[in-house]
């Protein structure tokens, strides 16, 4: 089979179910898709899938040649089978050579199933995307080995399928002079369309770490959930000098149930870039480092002077955090 790569780029939009807003990931996908379609000299289209998808059609049409709108009551909650069913309808109409999705709980859930159905190699969580001018294949860059290594993958085959890590692209899609066509897609959903049932969405502590000025994070070295009470004292002292100070965590405290997973910083958690990141009792496994390495100033407190976190910190203190924190907090209160 000769591959032509003659199709266009399709960016799959994401809608937040709670307020029917278009997630910023969507604009990131429009930006990356726009660049790619220019390089490939092809068209760009977008798919909007949701209960009130048409609400966003005009907005998205400013950035693409065609917008496919799939609207249905059954798409009110996120059901991967129904959303995939809707996307497959769009694929039949558009026949794209490149499909871009967000590396979010939705994007991954749909993309991996789609890749299996199409037998199209998928690269998830890409942090870089380039077009090879000769082959017109995608060079897909991602972190592997917990972030210790960066790999570029090139796969034959069509469509070229990737999920992009949120916030790597800035979401600055370029509006065009002419609005794209809006195509309404009918969706028939029968009882066999989904293999599962979404009963309800349960909201938990909503934490935003990505816009914090300061993050005080604890790790395994805290020794137990009470360690976070000590960190809370440091947090409230810092809150006098900064607008937004949050508690964070490496993975072990989450695994051990000491703290909510919404505070996890790292490869499978949040990627943060605060002014100050204070790591207490965190050894510095690579999968944690890649979540905080963009912090401007890193302070590490650890009892093990050989802990890798010190190679990633600007200022360090070796010792028992329980003994160091009280005077640290007191002095900060004086100085801030």
């Amino acid at each position: 089979m000769v591959l032509t790569m003659s199709g266009g780029v399709l960016s799959v939009m994401e809608i937040n179910e709670e307020d029917n807003s278009l997630d910023n990931t969507s604009f990131e996908l429009l930006e990356a898709g726009g660049v790619l379609s220019k390089e490939a000299g092809t068209t760009i289209s977008a798919a909007i899938i949701g209960r009130k998808a048409s609400h966003h059609a005009d907005n998205v049409a400013r950035y693409v040649d065609r917008v496919y709108v799939v609207e249905h009551e059954a798409l009110a909650s996120f059901n991967p089978y129904l959303h995939l069913h809707a996307l497959e309808k769009v694929l039949k109409l558009e026949g794209p050579s490149y499909i871009l999705m967000g590396h979010t709980y939705k994007g991954v859930d749909i993309a991996a199933r789609l890749a299996a159905r199409l037998k199209a190699p998928l690269t998830t969580d890409c942090i870089g995307l380039e077009l090879d001018p000769q082959t017109r294949l995608l060079k897909r860059r991602r972190q592997v080995y917990g972030g210790a290594v960066i790999a570029t993958f090139i796969y034959q085959g069509e469509p070229q399928l990737v999920t992009l890590r949120p916030k790597v692209w800035r979401g600055r899609a370029e509006p065009r002079q002419v609005m794209g066509d809006i195509i309404q897609v009918d969706l028939d959903i029968n009882s066999s369309a989904s293999k599962l049932r979404v009963i309800e969405r349960v909201k938990e502590e909503a934490v935003r770490l990505d816009d914090a000025d300061v993050i005080v994070s604890g790790g395994r070295g805290l020794g137990g959930p009470d360690g976070f009470k000590e960190l809370e004292k440091l947090r409230s002292a810092l809150a006098k000098g900064f607008k937004k100070v949050e508690i964070g965590s490496s993975r072990p405290p989450v695994d051990k149930g000491w703290i909510s997973s919404s505070r996890q910083v790292g490869l499978t958690g949040e990627k943060v870039s605060p002014m100050i990141y204070i790591a207490v009792g965190i050894s510095g496994a690579t999968q944690h480092i890649v979540g905080m390495e963009k912090s401007k100033l890193v302070v590490a407190i650890n009892s093990d002077k050989g802990a890798p976190i010190f190679t990633m910190a600007d200022i360090g203190a070796v010792g028992d955090y329980r003994q160091i924190l009280p005077s640290f907090i007191k002095k900060l209160e004086e100085l801030l």
Partner: peptide, 9 residues
Amino acid sequence: PEEVGERLA
């Protein structure tokens, strides 16, 4: 350790 904490601040 107290001194370390102060100097760290």
